[in-house]
């Protein structure tokens, strides 16, 4: 007969989540939209992180102005870098860590470790995913003949649905996970989102660019549209070929002004 089962090892002590009042949460959310207001080459968005976390620090024992409050605010206003939308993950996690009374050295190590992932994931998800996809969607609507108001509104609504949701979700995840927020960065939205947004963006670009060019040329028949599109395709191939050595928009600036002078000069 076997003996009594081994008692389970005691669970690691967990720290109960501190209260996160609605008013504090709302103030942080409103401040998140200005997280980059003092962006600079010295501490990047460090001051912005301190600015966003500050309403939560008022909940520390002693309240605003106490020794704990000032020490925590000083920690949170140091150098920090992240994508501005994903900074909300850091703000939620750091606010919770401070209110839980985590050791300062641990918070500072955590803060340093967060910078890289929040920057690279955000760039891929937003600047190379959501933004171009929504922009190409707006251009597609233009190509299909939509009114100015429709093009503008659809672009803004699509983009900001993603933008605002990302900020709110980031703050919530950061607060829920605290110092374990790195696990949230493996969430399918952040892992697979950039891939699917890139695919959607590529498809939309394929449809939108020819249609937008067609509507810009506006009439003149298939031949004129065709010549414009073939020229654009040749130009795109050249830009891809000289990728990293030539910037198309700078060439366009020169070409545009040169054409303007030529057209005016030819008349004179």
């Amino acid at each position: 007969m076997s003996g009594a089962p081994e008692p389970a090892p005691p669970a690691a002590p967990t720290i109960a989540a501190p209260a996160f009042p609605f008013r504090t949460r709302a103030t942080i959310i409103s401040r998140l939209f200005a997280v980059q207001a003092s962006w600079n080459y010295e501490i990047l968005i460090g001051n912005g992180i301190g600015f966003c976390v500050e309403p939560a620090l008022r909940l520390l024992p002693g309240g605003a102005g106490s020794e704990e409050y000032r020490a925590a605010l000083a920690r949170q206003s140091q150098y920090f870098n992240a994508h501005p939308y994903l900074a909300s993950f850091a703000v939620g996690a750091l606010a919770r860590a401070e209110l839980e009374g985590q050791p300062p050295a641990r918070i500072e190590r955590f803060r340093t470790a967060l910078c890289g992932p929040l920057g690279s994931v955000g760039d891929r998800l937003v600047w190379v995913g959501l933004l171009p996809a929504c922009s190409f969607a707006g251009l597609l609507l233009f190509g299909l003949g939509a009114s100015p108001l429709t093009c503008v509104l659809v672009f803004l609504v699509m983009y900001n649905a993603g933008h605002v949701a990302l900020r709110l979700w980031g703050l919530q995840m950061g607060w829920e996970k605290g110092l374990a927020v790195a696990s949230a960065l493996g969430h399918p939205i952040l892992r697979e989102g950039p891939v699917w947004l890139a695919r959607a963006g590529t498809f939309l670009a394929g449809v939108a660019v020819p249609l937008a060019v067609m509507r810009l040329v506006d009439g003149g028949g298939l031949a004129r549209v065709g010549i414009t599109l073939v020229t654009a395709a040749a130009g795109a191939s050249a830009l891809v070929l000289f990728h990293g050595r030539v910037e198309g928009w700078r060439l366009a600036l020169l070409a545009g002004f040169a054409a303007l002078v030529l057209f005016l000069f030819r008349h004179a």
């Binding site: 190379v128 890139a198 695919r199 654009a232 395709a233 191939s237």
Partner: peptide
């Protein structure tokens, strides 16, 4: 037409630069 050609070229080139390294995007394009 000249401005549209330039714009189309830059946007198409930029789309390739942004998306070509992601798997599967070629077929979506």
């Amino acid at each position: 037409p000249m401005l549209a050609s330039l714009g189309g070229a830059v946007a198409a080139g930029a789309a390739w630069k942004m998306f070509h390294s992601t798997s599967g995007t070629r077929w979506f394009g």
